[in-house]
């Protein structure tokens, strides 16, 4: 079983083999109980429960993000725009076991509700990487591509994924799940990213249509598609973030892609994973 219910106790061994932080969470923390999921990892627990020691605004343009530091260590990026989609993307990643999205929770900071995503220090933004560096992460980028198809991410480009120590991290997932950022509503059905057309590796948008995808990815999707209980839990959790219709759509797309990959090992074109209704 990949997930556990109820918080992991501090100091307890983590599923990854590490040890959870030993200090207790601050009692003064501002939380959003309605939006807390029953699934919790030590990192989520830290992000969700520790009081902030500082907050610093990020950006000069259209973002509403801030860099927060937590009492007793821990850093995160906090945002109040598109934040439910950020959490939803993390949940999909978590349940599929792709390990692309840094732990992301919903909490309050200074009376504002938003998402807090673990900060990845010393990382390189995709746009700072050479072709050679990107080619070394080909399999991870393939996972990212499939992940974006699943969540209907309309805005993946080389400014919103990170590389560090051979790992790829998907950040800034707010424009996913058919999100209309100006109205705050979600479309009933997620759509495929129209940008995923025939662009080559090295461009800001990468497509892997027609290419063999990693067996590990296929196994992860298949495992999830065979586990009805996990599907139900994820659908419920996503429903709180993006609505029931969209949540159902995400689960169906995972299963559609999984079936296709199990049979063919690749996705021929975007029509092959278009939902029937």
């Amino acid at each position: 079983m990949k997930f556990r219910f109820g918080p992991i106790r501090f100091g307890e061994s983590t599923p990854e083999g590490g040890v959870a932080v030993t200090s207790q969470p601050s009692p003064k923390v501002e939380q959003s109980p309605r939006l807390r999921s029953p699934i919790s990892s030590p990192k989520e627990e830290v992000l969700e429960s520790r009081e902030t020691s500082s907050e610093r605004k990020i950006g000069h343009g259209v973002t509403d993000s801030s860099f927060i530091e937590l009492v007793d260590d821990g850093k995160a990026v906090f945002k109040t725009i598109d934040y439910k989609a950020e959490r939803a993307a993390y949940l999909v990643d978590l349940f599929l076991g792709l390990k692309l999205v840094p732990p992301t929770v919903i909490r309050k900071v200074n009376n504002r509700e938003g998402s807090a995503q673990e900060f990845i220090p010393d990382s390189t933004v995709g746009g700072e990487c050479s072709m050679h560096e990107l080619s070394l992460c080909q399999e991870k980028l393939m996972k990212l591509w499939v992940f974006d198809l699943i969540i209907g991410n309309k805005d993946r480009h080389n400014g919103n994924f990170l590389l560090k120590d051979g790992e790829v991290y998907a950040i800034d997932n707010g424009r996913s799940f058919g999100y209309r950022s100006y109205t705050g509503n979600f479309r009933r059905k997620i759509i495929l990213n129209p940008d995923y057309r025939n662009r080559s590796v090295g461009d800001s948008h990468v497509t892997f249509f027609g290419q063999d995808l990693p067996q590990n990815l296929i196994d992860l999707l298949k495992s999830f598609s065979e586990n009805v209980k996990e599907q139900e839990i994820l659908q419920d959790l996503l429903g709180e973030m993006v609505g029931r219709e969209v949540a159902r759509s995400v689960i169906r797309r995972i299963k559609t892609i999984s079936t296709l990959l199990t049979k063919k090992g690749l996705i021929p074109d975007k029509n092959s994973i278009r939902l029937k209704s």
């Binding site: 990020i58 950006g59 400014g159 919103n160 990170l162």
Partner: peptide, 14 residues
Amino acid sequence: LKFAFRSDYLNATD
């Protein structure tokens, strides 16, 4: 540019 680079790690000014 400000819409393309609006991520938390990389952002553009007006």
